[in-house]
Amino acid sequence: IIFRWWKISLRSEHRSSKPGETKETHEDFLENSHLQIQIALIFGARILDYVFNMCEGKFDFLERLSDDLLLYIISYLDLEDIARLSQTSRRFAKLCTSDILWEQIVQSSCDTITSDMRALAEDIGWRQMFFTNKLQLQRQLRKRKQMHDSLGENQLF
């Protein structure tokens, strides 16, 4: 573990101070409570836990994956599994309710998506669109089309 710091100050006596650095082996870091406290104060408990896990050889490979790749993987899960995954962390909750994921799910479950359907999904959200039954969707699409048509007529006069 390499921990570097810089002193930033307007005082003249600190202007010439050089950056500090501490290098610790993983084993030494696990025993150095002073350095652990410094990391927790500066970066927070989450980063301290992450560093602890790294030093103990426990890697969270999912944490390292990009959101795009995770969304791609999640899109292949069953709905029950998506619901369970969304309860595991804030990151997964955000991903499991994202419009990007639900757009992928709707596209994979529908033969075609019309421009009217796409516009409605942008209004109500792709997740809502997925869970709305076909009759309700048809009603909402008709209503949206009527509103759009009536706005167009009003603009003509």
Rank of each mutant, 00 (worst) to 15 (best):
F131S: 09
I42S: 13
R84H: 10
S115F: 06
L151Y: 10
A45G: 01
W6V: 13
F130M: 13
F157G: 11
L69N: 02
L95E: 10
Q146P: 00
L137T: 03
Q140R: 15
L95N: 05
W126V: 00
D28A: 13
N32S: 09
V106K: 06
Q136D: 14
H26S: 06
T88W: 06
N133C: 10
D123I: 12
I39T: 03
W6R: 15
I74F: 07
E31W: 05
H14T: 13
W126E: 03
M129T: 04
S89I: 00
C110K: 14
S86L: 10
S33K: 15
Q128C: 06
K7E: 15
E27L: 12
I113H: 04
E21R: 14
S109F: 01
D116C: 07
I1W: 04
I113S: 00
Q36Y: 05
E63A: 14
D78F: 00
R11V: 08
G44L: 02
I74T: 04
F52M: 08
I42R: 13
E21P: 01
K18D: 08
T25M: 10
L48Y: 02
G44F: 01
G152N: 14
I100R: 10
L10V: 06
R64F: 14
A45I: 03
C96D: 06
F61I: 07
L41K: 15
L70M: 12
S98P: 02
E80L: 11
N133K: 05
R84Y: 09
H14Y: 15
T22I: 15
S109P: 00
L77I: 07
E24S: 08
E31T: 09
G44Y: 01
F3R: 04
Q87D: 09
L95Y: 02
F52G: 01
G152Y: 14
L85D: 04
S12P: 11
Q107G: 04
M117T: 02
L156W: 01
I124S: 04
L120W: 01
T114F: 07
